[in-house]
């Protein structure tokens, strides 16, 4: 049974989270205590469980009962893990496996502040469309040229500008020989060779 949040814009926090150092860091969205199964109910379909690895070491069974208690409810189920110990490799390996079985997604954080920010972000971005991560952001011509040129290892912003200012167009820069490119100040031999090889390399390799 899903608890209905009292306000559409607030995060419901399980009372057992009282005293969690991440709470003061939830600043930009309101939150209130409520009687819910998960630790945080961010939206009606998104819930979070919180786990400190230090605590996990002392009570290894705790998180499993909490995961079980969720049952099949909620679409997005986050396990927010705070790395507060150096012995993390084994517990993370084990938690990775059990979250795969129980259908939870792990988010790692390294500080209470970061953890708080994650809780907050899930609320803030509740209705954000995916455009920000779905496609390349519109950029001006020179930035695109920069993106293109700096894909080659060792080529930086200045080199990119030097190249385009010397040759005028991307086509001329692509067609230029090693000798011509080598004359652009800042373009050393290695860089030049890498660039020329990259633009001439065949797309198709294997057979």
């Amino acid at each position: 049974k899903i608890q209905k949040p009292s306000g559409p814009s607030s995060i419901i926090v399980n009372t057992r989270q009282k005293g969690n150092p991440l709470l003061p860091y939830i600043k930009s969205v309101p939150w209130e205590y409520g009687d819910i199964i998960p630790d945080y109910l961010v939206t009606p379909t998104t819930c979070m469980l919180f786990l400190s690895l230090k605590y996990h070491r002392l009570h290894p069974e705790y998180i499993y009962t909490r995961m079980k208690s969720l049952g099949k409810a909620y679409t997005l189920r986050i396990l927010l893990i705070l790395i507060d110990t150096d012995q993390h490799t084994d517990p993370i390996k084990e938690l990775t496996k059990s979250t795969m079985i129980n259908g939870l997604t792990i988010i790692l954080t390294w500080s209470a502040a970061e953890a708080g920010r994650y809780v907050e972000l899930y609320k803030v971005m509740e209705h954000t469309p995916a455009t920000m991560i779905k496609e390349r952001q519109k950029e001006d011509y020179m930035s695109r040229v920069e993106d293109f040129a700096t894909t080659v290892r060792g080529v930086n912003k200045t080199d990119s500008l030097g190249l385009i200012s010397m040759f005028g167009s991307v086509r001329a820069a692509v067609n230029a020989t090693e000798d011509q490119i080598g004359l652009v100040p800042g373009w050393g031999e290695k860089k030049t060779r890498r660039w020329c090889a990259a633009v001439r390399e065949d797309f198709r390799v294997g057979g």
């Binding site: 997604t105 792990i106 991560i133």
Partner: peptide, 18 residues
């Protein structure tokens, strides 16, 4: 971090191995 949040919101079935 925001992008990671957005990604998981859009793909709730996606699991993450750290």
């Amino acid at each position: 971090q925001a992008k990671l949040v957005l990604l998981t919101l859009h793909f709730p079935k996606l699991r993450i191995i750290w």
